[in-house]
Nucleic acid binder design. Structure first.
Length: 597
DNA sequence: GTAGCGCGCGCC
DNA sequence: AAAGGGCGCGCGCTAC
């Protein structure tokens, strides 16, 4: 069954069962809402239809209430209103998005997306000021403001849901879109749950890493001793006693004056030159990065009660990968991952999908030869084994080049050999690139479409097609067309890989629920405070093709099986019987650092 | 004083 | 080695 959630009058949450009536069957205050959800969840296990999981679900989690399934209208609209598979169904705008529905997290600034200015919204919202302070959350939850989606009347939410179902039904691929919306919505639930659970983080281990790399914590306003030493050395070797190594402009000038003819100060370009200052400079940059991104001030800001709780943004990028807001959770440097340590008596089940994107490409293109290369553990060795290239490194560079559109260097030279061996896969990405170059959008396996290039891009192209266009105009237009083609080339692969990962994670989440339901609470967890789910295995991290489950150690083996099974099932869901495999690198460990093979 | 931008670099 | 896709973040710097 489905239950639609919205507002009814000031301060009340109304629930509608659309299979029975469009009138609410119940309404409660926001304070009573989590209890009602809990009761309905245990008795009927509905799919909850609500405007925005990021606004509704934290209130439930704060009360220890989890739900099994939902339909996130914001995320679904972002998919449906862009998808080429609904283009005909959307027609001339008769099925337009209502103006109260916020844009999706990746839609801002995209061409063709009308996001009404707040002042222009004729919204049917109630004033929900009396939501203030009603929740008992362990962390404060923002009250609903007058234009908050929490305050949208339930009949408007119901109408939007109906619009979305109609678009799915009238689309070219209803089954795929249903799966995508379910997976995307499950991702939204997981994103909120990851934040609520937090990633176990051992401050002492992290501080030890900092001490090893940077030395003792410096006084406020000072740099760590190790950085000062390196800076002094670099200045001496460059003959530039006053150069500020943190200033790109300053540093570039000093490098050139010392005879190092670089165009930038980036590490890869520096490494192409021979000069004694370069090694200490690169070492300095490495430490400077660690200091500014993940050192003591990061710990102070982000680690609370032994947990790292970033804000995940499901659907936060055009391709469907997630983003995060704050904390840099998707860019944790490898050398601080040793600080991710399971609680005593608990373990981390760490798994990442090996060479996910090339495997997805093989499946998308139905390229039997390419899928064959990936059978067994290592995809790149399979390519070497097939005689396409000589070394594993060549295979890797060639594959990345094919998916990203490399034209130069070693990668560009190897791509043609790959194209001869795997013509179907290569044709698929080449076609996606060609679509992008002519300004069209491309679509993933399940129906997420790429944004269209902006007005600026189109202006550049049409300028180049005028009779009076200069050769510089034409060059610029071709270059920008190829840039966009590389984006769309990669979009189909990265976007479909994101769909695989969502299906993997959603499937795993429900398996973890089954393990929790079937197992007695382990002794190690029985006396834990906090929500029930924190006494049983739960997801604590997600990074594009990698997950971490925190689990009582005695359940770790069961969890590992669930993780692997979910990967196999995700492959089936997306590619049916086509024989492409999705092996995992999987480890049961106490520390994230131990998971690297 | 601060908003916006380019750079560089961490991750996938 | 090479420099092709997607991000977020902190920094220095410039323009207001």
């Amino acid at each position: 069954m489905r239950i639609v959630v919205g507002a009814m009058g000031p301060g009340r949450v109304a629930l509608v069962d659309p299979s029975v009536s469009s009138d609410p069957f119940d309404s409660v205050t926001m304070r009573e809402f989590p209890g009602l959800v809990q009761a309905l969840e245990s008795s009927r296990r509905p799919r909850w239809i609500w405007a925005d999981t990021r606004r509704w679900y934290p209130r439930l989690l704060a009360e220890g209430v989890r739900v099994d399934r939902c339909h996130d209208l914001v995320l679904a609209a972002a998919i449906l209103d862009q998808s080429t598979t609904t283009a005909a169904a959307r027609g001339d705008g008769v099925r337009a998005r209502p103006d109260w529905l916020p844009a999706g997290p990746a839609e801002a600034g995209q061409a063709g997306v009308v996001v009404p200015a707040a002042s222009a919204v004729h919204s049917p919202l109630f004033e929900f000021d009396d939501f203030d302070g009603e929740t008992n959350a362990s962390e404060p939850v923002e009250p609903a403001g007058p234009r908050d989606v929490l305050a949208v009347p339930v009949d408007a939410v119901l109408a939007e849901h109906a619009r979305q179902l109609a678009l799915v039904a009238a689309s070219e691929r209803p089954g795929a879109l249903r799966l995508l919306i379910a997976a995307e919505s499950a991702g939204a639930l997981i994103g909120a749950e990851l934040h609520a659970a937090g990633l176990p983080w051992h401050r002492g281990v992290h501080e030890a890493v900092l001490a090893t790399e940077l030395g003792p914590k410096p006084a406020p306003g000072r740099k760590p001793a190790r950085m000062e030493e390196l800076a002094t050395e670099v200045r001496a070797l460059l003959g530039a006693p006053a150069v500020n190594l943190d200033s790109q402009v300053d540093l570039l000038k000093a490098l050139r004056r010392a005879g190092i003819q670089v165009e930038s100060t980036s590490r890869w370009e520096l490494r192409e030159h021979e000069h004694p200052a370069i090694e200490p400079l690169v070492a300095y940059k490495k430490l400077a990065r660690l200091l500014s991104a993940n050192a003591w001030s990061w710990l102070d800001e982000w680690i609370v009660d032994g947990r790292f709780r970033p804000d995940y943004v499901p659907g936060g990028t055009a391709t469907g990968r997630w983003a995060t807001a704050g904390g840099g959770a998707l860019q944790l440097p490898k050398n601080v991952r040793s600080a991710v340590v399971a609680d005593p008596g608990w373990s981390l089940v760490v798994a990442d999908a090996a060479q996910l994107e090339p495997r997805v490409l093989a499946g998308l293109a139905h390229d039997q030869a390419m899928a064959e290369a990936g059978r067994g553990r290592d995809f790149y060795s399979g390519i070497v084994g097939a005689g396409v290239v000589e070394t594993r490194d060549q295979a890797k560079v060639a594959i990345l080049g094919a998916m990203y559109g490399a034209t130069t260097g070693e990668s560009g030279r190897l791509v043609p050999r790959l194209a001869r061996a795997y013509p179907r896969a290569m044709a698929l990405v080449d076609r996606a690139a060609a679509e992008g170059e002519r300004g069209a959008s491309v679509t993933t396996l399940l129906g997420r479409s790429s944004p269209l290039p902006g007005v600026d891009w189109r202006a550049t192209q049409s300028l180049a097609s005028q009779p009076e266009a200069t050769s510089a105009d034409e060059r610029r237009a071709r270059s920008r067309a190829r840039d966009w083609g590389r984006f769309t080339r990669n979009f189909v692969v990265q976007g479909t890989a994101a769909e695989w990962a969502l299906c993997w994670m959603a499937g795993l989440r429900s398996k973890l629920g089954a393990i929790a339901g079937a197992s007695p609470v382990p002794a190690v967890a029985a006396h834990r405070s906090g929500p029930a789910f924190e006494r049983m295995p739960h997801l604590v991290y997600y990074l594009h093709d990698e997950i971490i489950v925190h689990t009582p150690s005695e359940l770790a083996d069961q969890v590992a099986v669930a993780v692997a099974d979910a990967a196999t099932e995700a492959g089936r869901l997306l590619f049916g019987e086509f024989p492409v495999e999705f092996p995992l690198d999987l480890a049961v460990v106490e520390s994230y650092a131990s998971a690297d093979a």
